[in-house]
Design a protein around this nucleic acid. Structure first.
Lengths: 345, 345
DNA sequence: TTGTATGCGTTATCAA
DNA sequence: TTGATAACGCATACAA
């Protein structure tokens, strides 16, 4: 035999029917374990099926059942996304649930062309996928609303947009707790590195920060609010800015860990010590926080679990044809305290 | 309008034909930009298609074209796999190429049930996927050979199994270079933490280590060969073992970075300094190496690129129906030297 | 238990 | 030439 086995025959239900000397319908009944088939006939058919390794075509099945059996996850287009802990954790959770439901997962990236070209809508209309889970979308991603309006179930993971169904963690509360924690250690002048204004988690965390600062009567000033964009570099820049003011903060709360790591760079470069001179708090508990020195204080949000919950909610919607509408899930938060956040000097 | 838009009509080719007052085949000709259709008719049909947002069903198309337009990536089942830099990088590269070819990507995990239940074979026979890319498979994964024998193109990413087509990095050479590097710094007694004996990359790297040790006339002994399993904990244990001998190594080369980080734990716990007392070298250049302290010396292997190359090779095989057979791709290596590997004391 | 219609698009064949 | 008709791909549901 040659090295090309590509042409190897794949059996169809006709082949099996012919081999068993029965009709196609009978084969179908056997396959689907119907009670209205003679056990003996069924055994005979199944024996042949097993022997030749026949599997019914999922494509033909999808055609008649009117569903693809495929769930799509849309990830943002940032370089090597899946390397990012936040996304990869969500993806793992989603993958596990999708697999458990006997569905398949296709992964798409929200490139500008993907959004503007209405690719998602096309995929749905092409019946490539039955529903969409979206991780890390922006609040400007109206293409998702169009998609939902076309009838495709769209579930947001840790994000809010219109009244699309969403499963989100307690981001405001997480931020509140971080600030509260720092305040309890004696800090009254706490800087903040916010994230993009188009990202729900960042918005909520900043809201939580502001709320806590107000409730606890801490200092509040524009000089304490720096802007970042989730990456190390922007965290570094934001922190340099925070430190440039005459009265610099004694603690900094960053909306994510990557920027907090950038903050460490800036703090160390300025010849300051962590946490003696400046305490530092991040969010998301990415793997890195355990490896940087000193270890970073952070708030853990279980994205694996959020991914799972979002996916389960999606299947409920899919199966019941249920309604849309916002639903917030409060997840338990875990503060992982390290030497990053010690008492104010 | 109710909140359930799920039932929203999706047009079929019949609807379009009826609306345009032509036959279904005419619509098909218009869709496929056939030369044998009157431009005016085509324009009319396309206008309607655009207006109502009709898209031909990918399922029906797959049925007649006899291909799913789906590529499957099989990942190993290790907790939160996609968080692992090695896998996520490969996955990114694959995703980009798959998308560029207008295909979709489904992700599966090689659980024990997946393997023993011949799930992959079933997926292929069900026409769910047209080809498979496998990342991180074991040399005992014979289910992949069965799959290939059934006619499914199977391409291995950085692994070798039978004579399945594969794209692999220069793992032997990487290890050789690491040892050579350490030898040049004056080390003659270099310990080694090997990986699982069922993982090609680990096997090749250990071969490279042994070859270098022999070529360069370095010390060779069973006491210098420790066994690990890619995770931090086993790297820690392996290093404790290496350090427990009377004449301990002055340098350690680990087949991957995660074990090297575990080695750091053990070395520091033993009160030794890196690199003054023991130099350390890892592999894979995972993100972490830049964050641990001291930074870890490592050899970069661009898994993103390897993923891309493997995927491109897969499409060539798929389109040409070409043969199987081993093909090794030598990729350029980059040694990232940090303070982890300094001169021997 | 089986014939037949159905789902949806493509393509070869045939007629205008 | 241009377009219509019919068969095909595969499995399933339902009436006979």
């Amino acid at each position: 035999m040659s090295t090309r086995d590509q042409g190897k025959k794949r059996y169809t239900i006709r082949d099996i029917a012919a081999m068993a000397g029965v009709s196609r319908s009978t084969v179908s009944l056997a396959l689907n374990d119907s009670p209205k088939i003679n056990p003996k006939t069924k055994a005979k058919v199944m024996e042949i099926i097993e022997r030749v390794g026949y599997r019914p075509s999922a494509i033909a099945r999808s055609l008649v059942r009117q569903r693809a059996g495929v769930i799509c996850v849309i990830l943002p287009q940032i370089g090597h996304v899946v390397s990012d802990f936040y996304f990869s954790e969500s993806l793992s959770g989603i993958l596990d649930v999708v697999t458990a439901h006997g569905y398949h997962l296709v992964v798409e990236m929200a490139t500008p062309e993907f959004k503007s070209g209405k690719k998602a809508l096309a995929l749905y209309r092409q019946r490539v996928m039955d529903a969409v889970l979206c991780v890390g979308n922006l609040t400007t991603d109206t293409y998702l609303i169009e998609l939902a309006e076309a009838g495709c179930p769209v579930i947001l993971v840790n994000s809010v947009l219109g009244n699309l169904p969403a499963v989100i963690g307690a981001n405001r509360q997480a931020a509140y707790r971080a600030v509260e924690h720092l305040a309890r250690l004696g800090h009254t002048r706490i800087g903040h590195i916010r994230g993009s204004e188009f990202v729900t988690t960042a918005i909520h965390r900043t809201e939580g920060y502001l709320q806590a600062v107000e409730d606890l009567g801490l200092e509040m000033s524009d000089e304490l609010l720096a802007q970042g964009y989730f990456d190390r570099e922007s965290g570094y820049m934001a922190t340099k800015w925070l430190l440039s003011h005459s009265r610099r903060p004694t603690a900094i709360y960053s909306v994510n860990d990557m920027m907090a790591i950038g903050a460490m760079d800036a703090i160390q470069e300025a010849g300051l010590r962590i946490p003696q001179d400046i305490a530092l708090f991040g969010g998301d508990d990415i793997l890195l926080t355990q490896y940087v020195s000193p270890k970073l204080s952070t708030i853990r949000q279980n994205m694996y679990l959020i991914g799972q919950l979002a996916c389960e909610r999606m299947f409920r919607i899919l199966e019941s044809g249920a309604a849309t509408g916002l639903e917030e899930v409060e997840l338990e938060l875990v503060i992982r305290e390290s030497c990053g956040a010690k008492h104010a000097s």
